[in-house]
């Protein structure tokens, strides 16, 4: 708990707010009552401020954590790539090769066309999402506490609980799917796929509606599935953390609550390891499948 005066609602809301950096307009009344004389680029001090910053604002925590994790991933893997040889692999190289072989077999299993982009894409998605999800297993209050000791109001440590991160990836994947659909089948083929099936050319509006929904559902479901799972997991961690937060002096009831928090967060944490890996895997596999569909004449 970061403050004694926080209510449960405030605690939950605090944990679900990103550290947002953006522009507040002239004459804006800030959360602490200060009125801005000129428009200012600053960190939001409340959820309302973050909202009022509009689209051109940046969630510094999401970007920062995902950048650090992505850099860590690329650093380790490129080091392994430099050290890789046909001899006996060292520990790190062996581990990296294990992951790469796993990804490679997944791609070979689901992707039938030839495209040098798909396997690295799948690898990046899997490892990056896995690392970002893994941040969920860091005890819920550690990183926000550390941030508040550095003077930051909010800090959401798990980038995949921010829909910006999941949609950022799923929309990129979606654009790739559209790009390769048009490249492989031609613009006519792509449009034809959207309009001429399943009912033939006389059912064109119905076709367009069905296939359009089908197409749009891909990025939306991809992003929301990951976001929803991680958000819900985070929420349960927050709720479990509230049990011990109700501590009000040594009594039997408080001791039971505290014990329950320890046991529950342990249990949920262990279960969450599964979700963390599974969600990364699902995102990767669906990306491969969508890319495969983009390369196929008929689906």
């Amino acid at each position: 708990m970061s403050a004694d005066t926080q209510t449960s609602t405030e605690y939950i809301k605090h944990h679900l707010q990103n550290l947002t950096w953006g522009q507040l307009p002239e004459g804006y009344t800030r959360a602490d009552g200060e009125v801005l004389e000129t428009s200012t680029w600053t960190l939001a001090h409340s959820a309302q401020e973050a909202k009022d910053m509009g689209f051109w604002a940046l969630n510094v925590d999401t970007v920062g954590v995902s950048l650090v994790l992505g850099a860590l991933f690329l650093f380790l893997f490129s080091r392994a790539a430099k050290a890789a040889s046909n001899g006996v692999p060292s520990g790190l190289v062996n581990f990296v090769e294990w992951i790469i072989e796993f990804i490679d077999s997944s791609v070979r299993g689901s992707f039938t066309a030839r495209n040098a982009l798909v396997a690295p894409l799948a690898l990046t998605i899997f490892v990056w999402i896995f690392l970002m999800n893994l941040m969920d297993l860091v005890p819920i209050d550690w990183i926000p506490l550390l941030a508040s000791s550095l003077g930051l109001h909010f800090f959401k440590a798990v980038p995949t609980t921010d829909p910006n991160a999941t949609f950022g990836m799923s929309i990129s994947v979606f654009l790739l799917v559209v790009y390769y659909s048009i490249k492989m089948k031609g613009l006519g083929g792509f449009v034809g796929e959207l309009t001429l099936q399943p009912f033939g050319k006389f059912g064109l509006p119905a076709n367009l509606f069905l296939e359009g929904v089908n197409l749009i559902a891909k990025p939306v479901s991809l992003a929301l599935r990951l976001f929803g799972n991680m958000y819900a997991g985070e929420m349960i961690f927050i709720l479990i953390a509230l049990m011990g937060a109700a501590w009000a002096g040594a009594s039997a009831g408080n001791a039971v609550l505290f014990g329950s928090q320890v046991l529950l967060s342990l249990g949920w944490g262990i279960f969450h390891i599964l979700i963390v890996t599974l969600q990364a895997f699902i995102f990767m596999t669906l990306t491969i499948v969508y890319m495969d569909m983009a390369h196929q004449e008929h689906h």
């Binding site: 910053m53 689209f55 490129s78 990046t124 921010d162 949609f167 990836m169």
Partner: peptide
């Protein structure tokens, strides 16, 4: 929970990571 420019930043980062990979 707001959709903002983070979306673009994440997409750009993602593209760079994939390219590097």
């Amino acid at each position: 929970m707001n959709i903002n420019a983070t979306l673009l930043a994440q997409a750009i980062m993602f593209a760079l990571f994939v390219w590097f990979c």
